[in-house]
Design a binder for these strands. Structure first.
Lengths: 197, 197, 197, 197
DNA sequence: AATGAATGAGACTTCATTCAT
DNA sequence: CATGAATGAAGTCTCATTCAT
């Protein structure tokens, strides 16, 4: 961001812009995400938008950061406390599906369509590291067998499975399907708890 | 396509255009996929591109169709013959990783970034139906337990898992990782072969 | 128009664009009427043109509307007051020739060359109706004989005669010819005042 | 034309091209009149079109020349023989309306839309000269009064009146209206026969 | 001669960004 | 600080014309 908002009024403006941007991205996709439209939707002038964001990219980054922070919060919460595998997986799936049900399109657009200068999407970004880290911790805590790959690779697989199922469920309008969620839970539990064969 | 190429020369041109388009899409993403750049990369003029494709969208469709046909061919081949679960899963993972190793970014861009007029991305498209159908046949053949979801939902999950893992492996440059592939194989076998608990 | 100009500055811009468009149309015809050339002639950028006119067609409509409004104003004025036939016809011919002398080619281009979305050129448009209406009122007031066609058909003929003579006079560069104007007056008076034969 | 067609086959080809061009111009207007479409409609390749016409303009000129020759033929015929004013005017109006009823759009497009390098539309062209000449001869033969303008100006007015009424009748779909034709005849007779007042 | 594939200048239009008010 | 008018590079697409086969 070009300028940190000092006054309360500015903070409200910035918030309105980010909010409007997220809504447009979610509802109309990357193609309609133009600085002029975002400004109009936020009820401010383009000039004001450029007061706080030096260019379009920095605005996406702000929106992306906010969204990914929400996702990380879910991950953090899911790892808290002592739970059984079943309980852990069940909570995680429920919360992730819920998080993506709010703005089904946003996640996909942010991760796949929107370009990115900084390395949020970089495999070595802080976000990715923490994200995979949470899964790795769960693997550490719950894996039943020494067989198979390293904790880190298992964590990646888990992350990718979650991502793939949610992503495609959103595409099919199946984010609300109980059967799908239950089956995903079963898959994850089976995988984590698999004893040696 | 606007016009079927009659002479040998034009068939070469069309092929060059589709090929160049796929390469740009894969290496530089949707943002750089401009009709002028594709034409230049193909070594022809924009005019030639528009001789065969009425607009930009129809060019993507052609590229997409070619890629998805390749994927379907793999699926079809993988289901042939009598194999053990392990053999089936192993072949499938190997072929799918191989198919995506040629143009690692193409799949993602085609499925997520590039807009689409026709319904290739529609959950009810013929492509999706056949694709899921192949997985459903495998489930039918190999599932070890009656527990869990319907064949159709299991097929979706399998498809989404494969998609998610490959998609993210491409992003991380890990399409060549043997450990990852082995672990994916283990996950899929475990899932399919899971006996009642 | 896409956007109503709020500030004084923008009203000037819009005016300059319409003015430049009319001049190009009149002097160089439809073929040279490109958005870039109009913008340049108006001393603004293409972007500004598209800020106020959603597309090329809407710009022509604006130019057309302005021109036709001028014509209608002349018709309205000519019908006012109590005059002799001679006086009425004389005034009308003088004013019409004068109106077309500013941009001699404009009328022709607008009516014949330039495409039209809305129905300005529709035989049943409001413009046509009012235009013919004025002539019909004049026929009503001045026709000397019951012989001949209905008032409405006479009005059409009068309108077409005026149109044809001015159109071709513009083409021949004869809009200033006194002899031509006098002769047209004579024709119209003779026609209106013709007693039974 | 680039090349005079020597063989019979060539003459047929040229004729087909001119014919197809006239049809497209009449039915679809100037905007659809592209060399590729004309060639296709004529059943030949673009290359063949350019064999006989060096460029697009020369093709229009050929079409225009053919159409104007038809018009002149009507004028010539109408002036033949000894007739009363009424008979002369009646024949002329009938034939002119008939000539324009075949391809109502062609005349307008050729005279107003289509650009022209050579001076067919030039006020001093041979066509214009002969055209006005025919009217001047009629004025010479039939004018009843010395009052009014020169024969030449009267001829212009007559020509313009005919042009204006037919042009607008075509636009209104009234080329078949008997009332309109009768009224035009009445106007022209009145004008020519007007005795001193 | 004929064919039709290929060319590329140029037209229309969008949108990120700047700057006078 | 805010506004919104203005800018212009860049993208999509068309079509007159050429030329290898």
């Amino acid at each position: 961001m070009r300028k940190a908002p000092r006054q309360a009024r500015s903070r409200v403006t910035v918030e309105a812009i980010v909010e409007a941007g997220a809504r447009i991205l979610s509802e109309h996709g990357w193609a309609e995400f133009t600085t002029n439209k975002v400004a109009e939707a936020a009820g401010v002038s383009v000039g004001s938008l450029y007061q706080y964001f030096p260019d379009k990219l920095s605005l996406i980054e702000a929106i992306r950061r906010r969204h990914l922070d929400d996702c990380l919060a879910i991950m953090r919460r899911s790892g808290e406390g002592q739970k059984s595998v079943e309980r852990f997986v069940d909570d995680l799936v429920r919360d992730m599906f819920a998080a993506h049900s709010l703005n089904p399109g946003l996640h996909r657009v942010l991760l796949d369509e929107a370009p990115s200068f900084d390395a949020t999407r970089d495999p070595h970004s802080a976000f990715e590291a923490e994200y995979i880290g949470h899964y790795a911790a769960a693997v550490e805590a719950y894996r039943a067998s020494a067989e198979g790959a390293s904790n880190r690779v298992m964590a990646m697989i888990l992350s990718d499975v979650m991502d793939g199922v949610i992503h495609n469920a959103a595409r099919r309008g199946m984010l609300g399907s109980v059967e799908l969620k239950q089956e995903l839970v079963r898959l994850l539990c089976t995988y984590l708890a698999a004893s040696d064969r």
